[in-house]
Design a protein around this nucleic acid. Structure first.
Length: 300
DNA sequence: CACCATGTTCCTTG
DNA sequence: CCAAGGAACATGGT
């Protein structure tokens, strides 16, 4: 599932390819991804409309379309869920089995493919209102992150997946950022001190920027066809085929040695998701019970 | 068959 | 009402 870096790479890739293309027909194969937008409404809104711009917000793609002879633009929101992909295909290419929505652009199709159909393709943009700051934007500061964390006793790893806290961090980069910041994933959010939050902020930015610069974490197959190369293909580019292990410091490295200290990486389950961390580099802070015990001792 | 998966949302429980 | 935990969603890979 694409986290922020892959969405960013995809948006940069698609924006110039879609610009000024006009939608001839709208094919909806899975209403579930419309997130409440009536199919007729989507067809009516998109048919004849032209792509004007595309931007990312968190893990969302926000398309701006202009209907023929209209002054106003229409926002269209996309989300890749766990398995979503978006790409252009020549009109004569076969559509994938799980094509949820297909926009006919004349000589090519813009395909939203999503095997598990957890993704979204909708005119309803209200989801954006709930999002916290962009991690690579000016609002994402240690001070703001501290205030977002201060009233939560949830483990910090779980809290980082909350899109209200910071928009775009997912399961991979939550583990990665905590490793870089040397913070235990089980540390209670509201017990982090400013220096640690400072480190965490920097670590989040660093792992995201690294991944964006790398192209993506998992090779994105933007052609929709693993055997084809060409314009829309990232995955097979030379140097882009490094395995997860070569790109990530702890994620999916259970039992393998920490790159810093050699201690085997652990995997635990938090909020029903896997977390990976180094128990040596990311030691939990001294438990409060231990602190109490000590003070009781010194009193005695 | 078992378990796992880059996400979000809904339901239940306390 | 709120926070937290877990199941559900749907499909495929190992």
């Amino acid at each position: 599932m694409p986290e922020l870096p892959e969405v960013e790479v995809l948006v940069r890739h698609l924006a110039p390819l879609l610009k000024n293309k006009t939608i001839q027909h709208v094919h909806i194969n899975r209403e579930r991804v419309l997130a409440g937008t009536p199919p007729q409404k989507l067809r009516k809104a998109l048919r004849g409309a032209t792509f004007e711009s595309l931007a990312r917000r968190g893990k969302y793609l926000r398309f701006e379309l202009r209907a023929a002879n209209q002054a106003v633009t229409l926002p269209l929101l996309g989300h890749l869920g766990m398995t979503g992909r978006m790409y252009l295909l020549p009109s004569n290419s076969p559509l994938p089995k799980h094509a949820a929505v297909v926009l006919d652009l004349g000589s090519e199709n813009f395909v939203f493919e999503d095997t598990r159909y957890f993704g979204k393709f909708t005119l309803d943009t209200t989801a954006l209102d709930e999002l916290g700051p962009e991690p690579l934007g000016p609002e994402f500061t240690p001070e703001n992150l501290t205030s977002a964390l201060k009233r939560s006793s949830q483990p910090i790893k779980v809290k980082l997946l909350d899109q209200c806290v910071v928009a775009g961090v997912g399961n991979i980069y939550a583990s990665e950022a905590l490793f870089l910041a040397c913070i235990s994933p089980s540390r209670q959010s509201n017990t982090l001190r400013l220096p640690q939050v400072h480190r965490l902020c920097g670590a989040i930015k660093k792992v995201l920027v690294e991944a964006i610069n790398r192209g993506s974490t998992v090779p994105l197959n933007l052609s929709g066809n693993g055997t084809r190369d060409g314009l829309f293909y990232y995955g097979s580019a030379p140097g882009a085929s490094a395995s997860l292990e070569e790109r990530l410091r702890v994620y999916d490295r259970e039992g393998k040695p920490c790159f810093t200290c050699g201690t085997p990486i652990l995997r635990v389950i938090q909020a029903a998701r896997s977390t990976f961390y180094c128990p040596q580099c990311q030691r939990a802070a001294r438990a409060s019970s231990e602190v109490k015990h000590r003070s009781r001792k010194s009193l005695a």
